[in-house]
């Protein structure tokens, strides 16, 4: 059984388009909310504190984005209401293969996974089984 709602935070329009098709085709989520950067994701998450049912169960988060990048968003979420960190499974989804990024991701205990692009069918199946 897939998620009801998924946040896809990435500045790459082509990737967002392709990923949305793939996610829906494989039934990972019913609804995919595309967000261009961290700040837009933050602004979308915070108002849902009081309506936790509307919070996405999944969030795919790119690292390199303008305005607010993935790390900056994670820093903000550290101080956000706990319900957000508990309810939303966050997966880093990046084209970076730098070990520093992977190591940095391990310092956040509320991160669920780290996926290197391209996003594959097996990635999606694995996440689906972990829901």
């Amino acid at each position: 059984m897939g998620a009801k709602k998924l946040f896809l935070v990435d500045d790459d329009e082509i990737f967002r388009t392709a990923a949305e098709v793939l996610i829906k085709a494989l039934g990972l989520a019913e609804e995919v909310v595309s967000l261009e950067n961290g700040l837009l994701a933050y602004d979308a998450l915070i108002p849902l504190e009081n309506t936790p049912d509307e919070l996405p169960e999944l969030m795919f988060l790119d690292i390199n984005m303008p305005v607010m990048n993935g790390w900056e968003l994670l820093e903000e979420l550290k101080h956000a209401p706990e319900i957000i960190r508990n309810k939303v499974q966050i997966h880093i989804l990046t084209s970076s293969i730098a070990p520093e990024d992977l190591n940095l991701s391990k310092t956040y205990d509320f991160i669920e996974g780290y996926i290197t692009k391209p996003l594959t069918n097996s990635d999606i199946e694995r996440i689906k089984s972990g829901l």
Partner: peptide, 21 residues
């Protein structure tokens, strides 16, 4: 390294994903 990692890979991984689909 950053360019290779990010810009080249982001484009090549998109191509790989799109063509795969």
């Amino acid at each position: 390294a950053h360019i290779v990692s990010h810009n080249l890979r982001s484009n090549s991984s998109n191509i790989s994903m799109l063509s795969g689909m």
